[in-house]
Structures are given as structure tokens and as C-alpha cells.
């Protein structure tokens, strides 16, 4: 997998952020495929999930953008990948209860007792990354996913997401600071 991030862009509107993301995705895929970005063709499935093609080889890609931050990820096609970037933010109790179940809320409070914005945005970002990997977006309810955090350091978590609707398990990994979160989710289609 190859991830590229750019925070040197400022004041791009949403369509411009998306175009920048597509450029980064081509660069990430080109690096993985050991070719030039001009050789990379992007295409989208009917559900809006992006992929890339280099000659006759297809690659999984994921693009994420938010204000002043764009990132892209590329991987071989046997892996489905999803990427999300967020700035830590507050959630109302109503929205929190709509995407996190009580056991998840409890575990997150234990792991991040002092930073509510960070733990809640981290959870959203991990679920969003998985939904992008699965090509679902918000077409599947986030409450159908259960986060299991296996390891936590000062700047990283790793674990799994259980998709109760699809009966699937995917890996999650997120790097964070108090100002920024980058979450990745992936699963292998060959397993």
C-alpha cells in the first residue's frame, strides 16, 4: 500500500479538493506500479468507488479530503482499501448514539479518557474508512459496524472492524495527533 498526503494546499473548494485527491491517487498508484502518473487511468464503479488501471492491471485506490488536507492510498487489487482524513470535532449525543453503540463508547472513553473530540472523530473516521473500502459509503448504517481496538500508542491505533451486515472482518489503522486523524481500513478479497 502507498499513501500520500498533502497539507500544503489552502482554501480549495470541494471540487478542487477532489481533483487534488485524484492527482495524488495517480501518483500513489504510479509509485506502487513503478510507472508514470500519466500511465494511470482512474475509473469509478456505479457506487462511486474509485479504482485505477495501469495497462491491463487494476489497482484499489481511495481518496480522502477535508479542508486543507488531501490524501490518497493505492494498493494491489486483491485488497479493498478505504482512507479517511478528519480534523477532531465535537459530536452531539444524538449523532454519537446514531453511529456508536454503548460498548464502543465505553471502550473509547477508557482508551482516550481526556480527549472527547479525538476519540469520537477517530471512531467515525475508522468506520468511514471501512465503508469506503467496502464501496458502500453511507449506504450501510455505521451502527452495523463494530470497532475492536487491539493496540493503542500515543499516536496510533490498530484493530479490526466487524461488519455485522456483510459478515466480514477488516483491519483498521489510524494515526492521530490532537489536530488531525488519518484512518485506513482494508480487507483481502482472496481470503
Amino acid at each position: 500500500m502507498y499513501i500520500l498526503k498533502s497539507s500544503t494546499i489552502n482554501n480549495l473548494d470541494k471540487p478542487q479538493q477532489h481533483t487534488a485527491g485524484q492527482g495524488l491517487a495517480k501518483l500513489a498508484c504510479a509509485t506502487l506500479a513503478q510507472t508514470k502518473p500519466s500511465e494511470v487511468q482512474l475509473f469509478y464503479t456505479t457506487t462511486g468507488q474509485p479504482h485505477a488501471k495501469v495497462k491491463d492491471r487494476t489497482y484499489s485506490i481511495s481518496i480522502a479530503h477535508t479542508k486543507n488536507l488531501v490524501a490518497a492510498l493505492a494498493a494491489t487489487y486483491s485488497k479493498r482499501i478505504g482512507l479517511d482524513v478528519e480534523y477532531p470535532r465535537s459530536f452531539s449525543n444524538k449523532i454519537l448514539a446514531a453511529f456508536l453503540n454503548q460498548p464502543e463508547i465505553k471502550i473509547l472513553r477508557e482508551l482516550f479518557p481526556k480527549n472527547k473530540k479525538l476519540r469520537e472523530t477517530l471512531a467515525w473516521s475508522c468506520k468511514e474508512a471501512y465503508l469506503k473500502a467496502a464501496g458502500l459509503g453511507l449506504r450501510q448504517h455505521p451502527l452495523s459496524l463494530n470497532i475492536q481496538i487491539k493496540n493503542k500508542t500515543k499516536s496510533k491505533i490498530t484493530g479490526k472492524i466487524l461488519d455485522t451486515k456483510k459478515g466480514r472482518e477488516a483491519f483498521i489503522q489510524a494515526k492521530f495527533t490532537s489536530k488531525q486523524i488519518i484512518a485506513i481500513s482494508y480487507y483481502d478479497t482472496t481470503k
Binding site: 470541494k14 477535508t66 479542508k67 479517511d84 478528519e86 470535532r89 459530536f91 444524538k94 449523532i95 446514531a98 453511529f99 467515525w124 468511514e128 459509503g137 453511507l138 448504517h141 455505521p142
Partner: peptide
Amino acid sequence: SLVTDSIQLFELILELENAFAIEPDY
């Protein structure tokens, strides 16, 4: 195109969903 990100889109879905006595099919 009206929302800034997926969190806002989810908030909008909840606004539409929560207005009714019986939850519409997600």
C-alpha cells in the same frame, strides 16, 4: 454537494429520519 463532508451528510440523514414517529427504512 450541499454538505461539507460525510459527517454532515449523516447529520442530514438523521434529521430526515428523526422527524417521524416510525423510523423510515434507512
